[in-house]
Design a protein around this nucleic acid. Sequence first.
DNA 1: CGAAACATGTAAGATGTTACATGATTCG
DNA 2: CGAATCATGTAACATCTTACATGTTTCG
Lengths: 177, 177
Amino acid sequence: MAQKNLLKYILLGLLENEKKTGYDLKKLFETEIGEFWSAKHSQIYLELKRLEEQGYISSETGLFGNKLEKTYYTVTDKGRRVLSEWEETPTGELPINKDEFILKLYFIHDKNDKRIQEMLSEQYRLHVSKLAHLKKRKNLLFKDEISRSKNYGHFLILDLAIRREKEYIGWIKQYLH
Amino acid sequence: MAQKNLLKYILLGLLENEKKTGYDLKKLFETEIGEFWSAKHSQIYLELKRLEEQGYISSETGLFGNKLEKTYYTVTDKGRRVLSEWEETPTGELPINKDEFILKLYFIHDKNDKRIQEMLSEQYRLHVSKLAHLKKRKNLLFKDEISRSKNYGHFLILDLAIRREKEYIGWIKQYLH
DNA sequence: CGAAACATGTAAGATGTTACATGATTCG
DNA sequence: CGAATCATGTAACATCTTACATGTTTCG
């Protein structure tokens, strides 16, 4: 999807409160951010270069161990302005959730086609396990009121993700025999 | 998202039962398919060319009016095989739903940040209107049992979409004051 | 007759994935 | 010391969007 270059804002957002290396960012995409966004390290390093050229972030290298040079990035004032401008802009237009399973289902016409049940049970497994994972994360990150108010946005979207999985599972159960 | 070239299968699926022009396909992406997939005409025409080169579809031109040449495409046996092979393959891996609103929310830390309520009410409007639209479609397309069993997959995903919107709205209401 | 919709394409550029490459550090 | 992880990059390629381009038919 060649589009709005949202990765730019993600990187700015992640670097806003703490300097990080490209590798740190990559790791975040494998865990926390990975729930709702994806990016490969090749793209991250490239984007960091570009953001620095444009003056949105600045870098500082630190020697780690004997030889290893790590590059730490921080957001500049200019970058901070771009970030909050984006945050303030109404998003508009709901996104299209491209889902391969949905697509396959669309092309099945016959109610009694055996593949429907096979597909539904595969999805059931996947969504049940996703739900378990999300609940575990919520428990881990947001046990108490204090942790919730510290990262309230994150709490909200995790809560939404859990509700969505429950709903998805409910839908599957309705049609799975 | 440069990935699995699913457009290929969508075109094959749409051409499976009826010959269509590139323009017909484009129109479908603006209406029916538009609910869960997107593609521009430039991409569609290109992909049709490629599919024909690969022998998955074949074309026939018909004169429309005095001068206008329309190109109609149909799936070949080879194409049909590729399509059903895809349909049979388990999808695996749940997709990441990239949603700009979710992203913005993630970067808001303070529970009392005014922007949360602004964003939620924008989303409320959008999802309420989306839900109304989906309900209208369901009513239009799947009033009776017969129409459901004719395009059962489509009925299922429309039903899912409606449930998802309801759930989304429920979530917004919980946090919107 | 003019505007909107029909109809089909190409080109440039942005975004994203996969593969290729290399080296350092940690930990068992 | 060897494997896993840390750490950073480039190259080739596929996908997708935006813009450019052109001509036809329908309908009020």
